[in-house]
Amino acid sequence: MHVLTVAYGHPSDPAAFDDHYAATHSPLARSVPGVREFTARHCASLDGTRPPYHLIAQLGFDSAADLQAGLASPEGRAAAADLESFADGGATLFVAHD
């Protein structure tokens, strides 16, 4: 399994971010070809301080080739382009694999 993790920084308007993520971005991400698993969770710290990220999403693919093909697809490009419309706190992307 190859997992693309997207760690979203804190947005200027968390409610607007969450609304856009739920209504627009999550459906775009779920539509990327090859996605086998999708999770998105808000972050909290153990000690009550502000966590480093607002939300972390993970998209699981069967292989590196599937991940690359998914990101290069029209759906993958649309999801990437959508980041500019709501992720003003930035987004860090990385891949983990078995």
Rank of each mutant, 00 (worst) to 15 (best):
L55Q: 00
A22V: 09
L4H: 09
E75M: 08
L4G: 06
D88E: 12
A7T: 10
P27A: 02
A64R: 13
R77M: 08
L83Q: 09
L83R: 14
L67H: 13
P27W: 00
P51E: 04
A87S: 02
E37A: 15
A81C: 05
D88P: 13
H2C: 10
D66I: 10
P52K: 04
A15L: 06
A65P: 01
P11V: 02
P27E: 00
D47L: 00
E75W: 05
A65S: 12
F86G: 09
A29K: 04
A40Y: 05
A57K: 02
G60A: 10
C43W: 04
L46N: 01
F38T: 01
E84R: 13
G90F: 09
P14F: 01
G89S: 00
A65W: 07
G90H: 11
L4Y: 08
L4Q: 13
G48Q: 01
Y21K: 03
A81E: 10
P27D: 03
D13T: 09
E37N: 15
A29I: 09
R50H: 01
E37F: 14
E84A: 15
S73P: 03
S85F: 09
D13H: 06
E37H: 15
R36H: 03
A78G: 13
T92Q: 09
Q58P: 09
A7V: 05
G34A: 04
A15N: 01
A7S: 14
H42A: 04
G90M: 03
T24G: 14
A40Q: 08
T39N: 11
L46R: 10
A80M: 05
T49I: 12
G90C: 02
S12W: 07
D19I: 10
A96S: 15
A80D: 05
A40T: 13
A65E: 13
S45F: 01
V95Q: 11
D82A: 13
T5A: 05
T5H: 12
F17N: 01
P52Y: 09
A64C: 03
S12T: 03
P11M: 04
A91Y: 06
E84P: 11
A22K: 10
A22R: 03
